[in-house]
Design a binder for these strands. Sequence first.
DNA 1: TCGCTTCTTTGACAAGTCTCAATGCACTCG
DNA 2: CGAGTGCATTGAGACTTGTCAAAGAAGCGA
Lengths: 248, 248
Amino acid sequence: MQRTAAEPGRDLGALSSSGESASARPAACEHGCRFFMDEACAHKSDMDKVGVTVKFARNETIYSKGDEAHYSYKMIEGAVRLSRIFADGRRQIVNFYLPDETFGIELSGEYTSTAEAVGDVVTLRCPRLCIAQLTAGNPDISQKRLAMLSKNLAAAERHVAMLGHQSAKERVASFFLALEMQRRTESEGMLDLPLSRQDIADYLGLTIETTCRALSELKRQKIIDAPSRRRIVIRDLAGLQAIAEGDV
Amino acid sequence: MQRTAAEPGRDLGALSSSGESASARPAACEHGCRFFMDEACAHKSDMDKVGVTVKFARNETIYSKGDEAHYSYKMIEGAVRLSRIFADGRRQIVNFYLPDETFGIELSGEYTSTAEAVGDVVTLRCPRLCIAQLTAGNPDISQKRLAMLSKNLAAAERHVAMLGHQSAKERVASFFLALEMQRRTESEGMLDLPLSRQDIADYLGLTIETTCRALSELKRQKIIDAPSRRRIVIRDLAGLQAIAEGDV
DNA sequence: TCGCTTCTTTGACAAGTCTCAATGCACTCG
DNA sequence: CGAGTGCATTGAGACTTGTCAAAGAAGCGA
């Protein structure tokens, strides 16, 4: 139930910080959210056209499972984790979102998972009703929304496949491989990930210890390197792929 | 439990069987596929309006991963499994589809998983282009399509959560519980599932032996009964829920 | 019906992962 | 600078699941 209210310097979206009255402000759509659905224009040059920027601090809750789903978000900077907590206290991270990706699109009225900022995060935020309005009049946006959901579904299915029958080492390898594929802009093989070991473990469905051991094993094989806590260097991409695919 | 107007062989949709020229036949949409997207009208009274019925025999492949995604399908009868095969020969079942559910909606041009008939199956089949056409002109249908994808995504996330940290016994319990929730029409607690143990195991990310042992354990605890191979009786729903949630 | 095949169930053991505990490492705050 | 804190890593043993093997049911065709 934590609303992301205003700690100093956190909510800089003038429009959005004024509360939940999104439906009363179609203006936000006209000059901002139109761009929200466009995968192609996430970057600074367009950001001034998009009024609804919201920041979150490390580990801050963006929304909780069960909250009314007033907003959808598009990542500008940082990383967000979607997770569910279970009765036994364990946490399953369902997905991570990186810049340019969209999360928080719910068709039922409630969020089905909890979203938290992994590190410091900048997002574009758009009221649900605003999107609905845009979607109704614009098949193009409707199409994009569909594409995003579809992409998320594909990711979830890959996740299922991984959890279904990869060993700890294979999972860790697959995980880094996926990150590497995604962030091709970075300097070769260098992953600068804000995730803790616990985050990784919770995504992979492993304990932190097992994750660590798998990592150490990969280091021993000179396939990756971990020069600092939050940095991974892939030294042998082919080797990593081989492991991810089960060729020991 | 078989019916449907239909025939020898398998493809009785005259419109659809005439090849991939769906785009040239908007007529199919006008009198058939319009209803395809409607969750509410899957039953007999509407079926005569929907020309494109297709049947599949037990274990028949409906489409394979990588095939061009010409069609989407809606389940009328039976069950379908969506799966992926891995390098090591193991199979992960990503989802099952039961009557009234829809599968095969791909936004990329290719199917991302393989679909097979678990038992004998009856589906409604609709060409992709046909759906696209309908969607363009009709925000309502667009909405339904979105809802279906969203439902599939939610299911995938639950699946991830299950594989992420439930024990074998918990998974089996959750599985039957989910089935029970879904088929509330059946007589109390009685599940008539066409799935083999291998199918269940591949869905749960377990081996067939482990699945079997978990099942036997549940039988021993008098929580379920398995009077025949393809039939499960839930004798203690509360107990099943307790196990699924981790309360031993 | 019998015999054959396929699927299911059970057992014994091996392998992988989790749990608990201790240590190491990096960063922050006095 | 040193102590304190949180996170990461490693080790030892318990427990769960996978593997291999065999026996028991169920379905099928001759």
